Structures are given as C-alpha cells and as structure tokens.
Amino acid sequence: MQGIAKIKEKIFEEAAEQKKRIIENAKKEATEILEKAGKQAAQLKADAEEKAKKAAGEEKRKILSIAELEERKRYLEAKQDLINEAFVRAENKLLNLEPEKYRDLVYHMILAATVDGNEEIVVSEDDKGKITHELLAKVNEALKRQGKAGNIRFSGEKRTIKGGFILKSATVEVNCTFDYLLKAQREELETEVARILFEE
C-alpha cells in the first residue's frame, strides 16, 4: 500500500510540477504576447498619429496655400484697380485741360500725325468748341512751312470720340484719340506707373 501511496504521491508531485511549468510557460508566453501586442499597438498608434499629423500638416499647408493665393489674387486685383484708376485719371486730365492748353496739345499732335497735309480731321461734338477752324488754319500754316500741302479740314463724318481726333486720307487713318493712345501705350507705361504707385 505504501508503494502505491508513494507512486500516487510522485504522480501528484509530477503533476504539480507539470502544472507549475505549464502555468509559468503560459504566463511567460502570455507576457511575451502582451508585450508584442503592446509594441504592435504602440507602433500602430504611432503610425496612425504620424499619418494624422501628416494629413493635418498637408491640410494645413493646403489651407495656407489657398489663403496665400487668395491674398495674392486680392492684392493683384487691388493693384490693377489702382493702375486702371491712374490711366482713367490721366485721360480725364487730358479731357479737362484748359481750352488753351488743350488746343496747344492738339495742335502739336496734328502736326506730328499728319502724313502729307491733305487729310480730314474727325473730332467729337464736344471738341468742336476747342478744335476750331482757327486752330486748323494755324496748323495748315505750319504744315506749309514744312513743305506739306497744308490742307487739313474738318470731316463731315461723325464718330463717337472721347477726346483727341482721327486724321484720315483716302488711304490712311491715324487714330489720335486719347483713349486709343493711352491703350496703345499702356503696356509700355504700365510698368512705370506701377513703379510710381507702389515704390516704397
């Protein structure tokens, strides 16, 4: 009986040892699994945070970029408005010159634009009080001194002209209206106007 008891005791001891080893191994494996899972979770979290941070950074950059573009667009529009206003004011100054100064300006413009001195001049209804027969007579005298025909005369043609004039012959038409001259010179003048307006 004692032998059987000893065997049983040994079996129980072995079982207890086995149980202990199994539990220890299970705990060890569980710890390793938990550590591994923890590391993976931490990595996943870090990756997610990095992606979120990157996405947030990209979104922020995108928003800032759009805002900067909008700001630049508004600035350029405001700048263009000021340049446009400068040209409008220049035209208005020409249109509102004192009659004597206006006639003097037109006198020199006609002399410069005349090809052979045998052209017709088209003027606006508003300018007929400034660009007179007396002015054309003075122009013709000057043209004759230059060896030209000296036969500039009013055209019966009516056109919508806002300051200045149009010289026309049978083959050539020279547009000397203020708005046309300003538009023609605008590309060349715009840089200089911008420099004057925005120079610091």
Rank of each mutant, 00 (worst) to 15 (best):
Glu100Leu: 13
Ala30Tyr: 00
Val115Leu: 05
Ile4Asn: 06
Gly57Arg: 11
Arg72Gly: 00
Ile33Arg: 14
Ala15His: 06
Lys36Asp: 08
Thr177Gly: 00
Lys54Asp: 03
Lys20Ala: 11
Glu17Asp: 09
Phe87Thr: 15
Gly3Cys: 01
Glu50Phe: 08
Thr132Trp: 01
Asn151Arg: 13
Lys54Ile: 11
Arg72Tyr: 07
Asp81Asn: 11
Thr160Ser: 03
Lys27Phe: 05
Arg21Leu: 11
Asn175Asp: 15
Glu199Trp: 13
Asp179Tyr: 11
Ala26Asp: 04
Lys79Gln: 12
Arg89Gln: 14
Lys162Met: 02
Ala113Lys: 10
Glu13Pro: 01
Glu49Gln: 02
Asp179Ile: 08
Ser124Ala: 13
Glu24Leu: 12
Val106Glu: 03
Gly3Tyr: 03
Ile63Cys: 04
Arg74His: 06
Arg21Ser: 14
Ile7Ser: 04
Asp81Met: 08
Ile196Glu: 08
Arg153Ser: 09
Ala56Lys: 12
Lys130Arg: 15
Leu135Met: 02
Lys53Asp: 07
Lys53Leu: 07
Asp126Gln: 13
Glu188Tyr: 02
Leu76Lys: 15
Thr191Gln: 13
Lys144Val: 11
Met1Gln: 11
Met109Val: 11
Glu173Tyr: 04
Val193Leu: 10
Thr114Pro: 00
Lys19Cys: 02
Leu197Ser: 11
Gln185Asp: 09
Phe178Cys: 00
Cys176Asp: 02
Thr177Ala: 04
Val193Ser: 10
Ala78Glu: 15
Arg103Phe: 12
Lys28Leu: 04
Leu64Asn: 14
Ala37Lys: 13
Ala137Trp: 09
Glu200His: 07
Leu82Thr: 06
Lys162Leu: 05
Asp127Ala: 05
Ile121Ala: 01
Glu71Lys: 14
Phe165Ser: 06
Gly117Gln: 06
Glu100Trp: 15
Phe12Gln: 14
Arg145Ala: 04
Ala184Tyr: 05
Thr160Pro: 03
Ile152Thr: 07
Glu70Cys: 04
Leu44Pro: 01
Glu29Asp: 13
Ala113Arg: 12
Asp116Met: 10
Gln18Ser: 11
Gln2Ser: 10
Lys39Ser: 06
Gln43Arg: 05
Thr160Glu: 08
Ile152Gln: 11
Ile161Ser: 01
Phe12Tyr: 12
Glu77Ile: 08
Lys60Trp: 00
Lys39Arg: 14
Thr160Gln: 07
Met109Arg: 09
Gln146Cys: 04
His108Ser: 06
Leu82Trp: 07
Phe165Trp: 09
Lys62Asp: 05
Leu82Ile: 03
Glu49Met: 00
Lys162Tyr: 12
Lys27His: 08
Glu188Trp: 00
Tyr180Arg: 10
Arg103Leu: 12
Asn151Phe: 04
Ala46Trp: 06
Ile23Glu: 12
Lys28His: 05
Glu119Pro: 15
Asn96Met: 03
Glu190Gln: 15
Ala26Phe: 06
Val193Phe: 04
Lys39Val: 04
Phe198Met: 01
Tyr102Arg: 01
Ala16Gln: 08
Ala5Asn: 11
Val106Tyr: 04
Gly164Arg: 11
Gly156Val: 02
Ala37Leu: 09
Ile63Asn: 11
Ile33Leu: 13
Glu77Ala: 10
Ala170Gly: 08
Ala142Phe: 00
Leu143Met: 07
Leu197Asn: 03
Glu141Asn: 08
